[in-house]
């Protein structure tokens, strides 16, 4: 029998998206999000994160199979809350009017919760959204999203434009969603944020998932090796990535035998990677042969 932890909030198999004009944004992506976890989709700009999320929500046509709580998105849409990359809301409205509109349009919307979040973010309730800064627009959109009683929350760059204090508040709020039994899919290119709140990460680059796993496993299982630049790696080396910088040859691996081999190379330094180092080494070393 499946445990709660193993139930899937989101399953993506073979997701492929080519935009008109031939841009191949996502290339056969597979990954899943377990119920009750914060899953961060990490990657540089143009990696395919937003395209993946747009596919999940049915905003674009795609090839592949996507299931949300084992259903098509249209069946469970009421149970999904979303904050897009572009936090545009109706500029002619005030936050007060926005709450009223959401209350009418969205079935499971709690106006009082929205008011509470907006107060917490110090938003002027009667001012037109047109006059809001980027950070205020983000705070408004987050308030409207968090006031929805949903099981899956999808955030695309949710801290964009926020000051450091509000950003930490938002990260805490997102973390608390999971404590309340919700699931979060979160995209960001700010690694320090992800490290604070994510249970699991998937790293995207050039439309592909390079790595998917638990953040705790990175420190436990992966090592980065800094070696002399003139060292020749064996052709069949089992590593996640390898790259040369100005002074060193850098290798990322989780293979025990490879670790043993690399440790024996003279002047080699072994480092337990944090997420930042893991991410940088993985992405920068991808094209090394």
């Amino acid at each position: 029998m499946e445990t709660t932890k193993e139930k899937k909030a989101l399953t993506i198999k073979g997701l492929d998206k080519v935009y008109k004009g031939g841009v191949h944004a996502v290339k056969g992506v597979d990954f899943s999000v377990d119920e009750g976890e914060v899953h961060a989709l990490l990657g540089p700009n143009g990696a395919g994160k937003t395209t993946t999320i747009k596919s999940v929500l049915g905003f674009i046509n795609y090839k592949g199979d996507i299931k949300v709580f084992n259903e098509e998105i249209d069946v469970v849409r009421a149970n999904v809350a979303f904050v897009p990359e572009d936090k545009s809301f109706y500029e002619f409205m005030s936050p007060q009017a926005a709450i009223k509109v959401c209350h009418r349009i969205i079935e499971q919307f709690e106006p009082n919760t929205a008011f509470d979040f907006m107060r917490r973010f110090n938003l002027p309730m009667k001012k037109k959204i047109k006059g809001f800064s980027h950070g205020m627009k983000t705070a408004l959109y987050l308030s409207l999203c968090l006031a929805q009683k949903s099981s899956l929350y999808i955030f695309d760059e949710p801290t964009w434009g926020l000051d450091p204090i509000r950003r930490d508040d938002v990260l805490e709020i997102i973390r608390n969603l999971v404590i309340d039994g919700k699931t979060v899919l979160y995209t960001s290119h700010i690694i320090s944020e992800v490290e604070k709140i994510a249970d699991r990460i998937s790293i995207m680059f050039d439309g592909q998932i390079l790595f998917s796993g638990y953040t705790d496993d990175i420190k436990a299982n992966y090592r980065v090796y800094y070696m002399p630049l003139d060292h020749q790696l064996p052709e069949q080396i089992n590593c996640l990535s390898a790259k040369k910088d100005r002074e060193k040859l850098i290798v990322l691996t989780d293979d025990k035998q490879t670790m043993q081999t690399l440790r024996e190379v003279a002047e080699t330094e072994e480092v337990v990677p944090n997420l930042e180092l893991f991410f940088q080494t993985l992405l920068r070393g991808k094209n090394y042969v």
């Binding site: 897009p84 572009d86 545009s88 809301f89 349009i105």
Partner: peptide, 14 residues
Amino acid sequence: DKGTIYFLLAKKNR
């Protein structure tokens, strides 16, 4: 044009 379509599409079937 304004990007508000995402708010509607996220909650309503087309």
